[in-house]
Design a binder for these strands. Structure first.
Lengths: 190, 190
DNA sequence: CCTACCGATCGGTAGG
DNA sequence: CCTACCGATCGGTAGG
């Protein structure tokens, strides 16, 4: 966390406001005020409002992608891959709650070459998890369910942790991981 | 479905666009165009853009509330109440996919007396489900988990069906209900 | 339901 | 990084 460029500071601050009120409802003037400069001055560090959203969405996407690669490469049961996936999602939500939230909720506001790309990246991520679930069903580790139902139920549970979970309020991160794993693994396991 | 007032037509159309691009990113001119009139003419039927969002959010909220009351009154196991809840959420998402989506994603854009009220109503709904889960844990029907983890994992799975499920594409409503029930009930049951 | 139009605010630029 | 400002668009109103 040594030095943070002005641009990074702007993006961090933007993620906080975008999470609270959404990308479209946030004005550059409001963002500038939070950063402590005039709106016009923001443009010395970023090219456009769009660019901020892009940086947030794709940096989150890349974090998820690099972790899923690591999970795929592990030599372990599909159940253990599932556990790793749960752990990964909790970790990222705790590390970057604002960015994850914005990527989940506001990617629709990306403009079009980037939006199309984002959807492809996201779809790719989903396919790789679907693959883990399918194989786990084939080996008999998991119940025979429609893959899309298993996939999106799992992903909904994981993606929307950020909407309700606040670390340490009455559930610690470890307790969250434990209970969520119990719930989801027992739901999927044969 | 006999006669639909002009106002209802406007609200239905709004729900479709709000779902696609979000409340803030949708202009009254765009809505007017879809309805087939001039933007100014919308105001003969609705008071403000705000009002449209309010009607959508609270009509959805009231549907959920009336169903949860019915479930509470059933004389059955907590497991069966849980199954009823899953069925209810699927039913509402299939009946009113756009409205449910807008209520889930855009309630943050309500302005403030109404936003506060919405949060209370929503919290009340969550508490009543938490109550079912807590009692089911006490009787030993359900696993001992932190109630908030069980509650929000369940609700995330149910609320965000609308993001991915399209009836009949490759999973029928009955298959969805069956697989989702299997997943969630096995996850929670002792 | 439309024409005409309002003040406010938006994202962003020029020039220093 | 600021002052000054742009054209575009916003939600909404007046008056018919």
């Amino acid at each position: 966390m040594a030095k943070k460029s002005r641009k990074e500071l702007i993006i961090n601050e933007a993620a906080i406001i975008f999470k609270q009120k959404g990308y479209s409802a946030t004005s550059m003037r409001e963002l500038a005020e939070k950063v402590g400069i005039e709106a016009a001055s923001l443009y010395n560090h970023i090219r456009s409002k769009d660019e901020i959203l892009e940086e947030i969405c794709f940096s989150v996407a890349h974090e998820y992608l690099s972790f899923i690669t690591e999970i795929e490469e592990r030599e372990c049961s599909y159940t253990d891959k599932l556990k790793g996936l749960i752990e990964l999602h909790i970790k990222l939500i705790i590390e970057k709650p604002n960015e994850v939230s914005v990527a989940n909720n506001d990617w629709k506001n990306l403009s079009d070459p980037k939006k199309k790309l984002y959807k492809e990246v996201r779809k790719g991520y989903e396919n790789r998890i679907a693959n883990i679930l399918t194989k786990g069903m084939q080996t008999g580790e998991f119940k025979q369910l429609h893959v899309s139902v298993a996939l999106f139920t799992l992903l909904s549970s994981l993606r929307w942790i950020e909407l309700w979970y606040r670390p340490g309020r009455d559930v610690t991160a470890d307790e969250l991981k434990h209970d969520l794993t119990t719930f989801l693994v027992h739901g999927l396991k044969n």
